[in-house]
Simulated assay, not measured.
Amino acid sequence: MTRVIFVRHGQTSWNQEGKYQGHSDISLNERGIRQGNLVAKRLANEKISAIYSSDLLRAQQTAEAIAEYHGLPVITKPEFREINFGIWEGLTYQEIMADWSEILTVMYSKPSEIGPPQGESFQVVKQRVTRSLQECIAKHQEQNIVLVSHGGTMRVLLCAALGIGLDKMWSMRQDSSAINIIEYIDNRAVVSLVNDTWHVKDI
């Protein structure tokens, strides 16, 4: 069995402003740094063998806070990035709805069928993240590992673990610095924790 502790990165200024980030490399804001430190403290007593992260700065910063408690390097993998939102990156929901209402509506009702203009689809995200996750799991049998990633990416992985279609992905919350735990046993995944944020309940 491999136990994977998935962590969503802390808050950024674009999260706060409601902007679509995707592959844009935005750092944590002050609140996000506090969230990263608190999730790191929460995981300080876990026995962790490796820490993986998306190569985007907001995920790396969160992973580095966790790594400080364990004396481990952060292994970055671009495959764990958020979806590429293409020409929507840096725009708000309202701005996107003004010009691409039909596409955005379909993406939220049937994300398996469509992706943002000049971006990528969630099907592509699923292919890249599940392949890379399988490689990590194979390297860490009978170990606990941490993977710091993004809201959309984490929803995709939860759908895969639960054996449900991507069209259910928006039914799951993924708040800033949320913890999710999935145990991978042979060809079976057991989800034991989803969107746990009690470590940041007081900020």
Results as ranks from 00 to 15, higher is better:
Arg3Glu: 13
Phe6Ser: 01
Val7Arg: 10
Gln11Gly: 07
Ser13Gly: 12
Trp14Glu: 08
Asn15Asp: 11
Asn15Trp: 09
Glu17Gln: 12
Tyr20Thr: 03
Tyr20Asn: 06
Gln21Ala: 05
Ser24Trp: 15
Ser24Asp: 10
Ser24Glu: 13
Asn29Lys: 07
Glu30Tyr: 11
Arg31Cys: 05
Arg31Asn: 14
Arg34Pro: 00
Val39Glu: 12
Lys41Met: 05
Arg42Cys: 08
Ala44Thr: 03
Glu46Gln: 08
Glu46Ser: 05
Lys47Met: 11
Ile48Glu: 09
Tyr52Ile: 01
Tyr52Lys: 04
Ser53Trp: 07
Ser54Cys: 03
Ser54Val: 00
Asp55Tyr: 08
Leu57Val: 10
Arg58Thr: 07
Ala67Ser: 11
Ala67Asn: 05
Glu68Asp: 04
Glu68Ser: 05
His70Asn: 04
Gly71Leu: 00
Pro73Tyr: 14
Pro73Phe: 13
Pro73Thr: 13
Val74Cys: 02
Thr76Pro: 01
Lys77Trp: 05
Arg81Met: 01
Ile83Gln: 12
Asn84Cys: 04
Phe85Ala: 02
Gly86Val: 00
Ile87Leu: 03
Trp88Thr: 01
Trp88Arg: 03
Tyr93Val: 02
Asp99Ser: 14
Asp99Leu: 10
Trp100Lys: 13
Ser101Leu: 03
Glu102Gln: 06
Thr105Asn: 15
Thr105Val: 04
Val106Gln: 15
Tyr108Ala: 07
Ser109Cys: 12
Pro111Met: 03
Ser112Asp: 12
Ile114Ala: 09
Glu120Phe: 06
Val125Asp: 00
Val125Pro: 00
Lys126Gly: 10
Lys126Tyr: 15
Thr130Lys: 10
Arg131Cys: 13
Arg131Ala: 15
Gln134Arg: 13
His140Asp: 02
Glu142Leu: 05
Gln143Met: 07
Asn144Thr: 08
Asn144Ala: 04
Ile145Lys: 01
Ile145Ala: 01
Val146Ser: 06
Ser149Trp: 07
His150Phe: 08
Gly151His: 12
Thr153Tyr: 03
Arg155Pro: 04
Arg155Met: 08
Arg155Gln: 12
Val156Tyr: 13
Cys159Tyr: 13
Cys159Val: 04
Leu162Ala: 04
Leu162Trp: 12
Leu166Ile: 08
Lys168Leu: 10
Met169His: 07
Met169Thr: 03
Met169Pro: 00
Met169Ala: 02
Ser171Lys: 12
Met172Cys: 08
Gln174Ser: 06
Ser176Ile: 02
Ser177Lys: 03
Ser177His: 04
Ser177Met: 02
Ala178His: 11
Ala178Asn: 07
Ile179Val: 06
Asn180Met: 05
Ile182Tyr: 15
Ile182Asp: 11
Glu183Met: 05
Glu183His: 11
Ala189Cys: 09
Ala189Trp: 14
Ser192His: 12
Leu193Gln: 08
Val194Phe: 15
Lys201Asn: 14
Lys201Phe: 14
Lys201Gly: 08
Asp202Cys: 01
Ile203Phe: 06
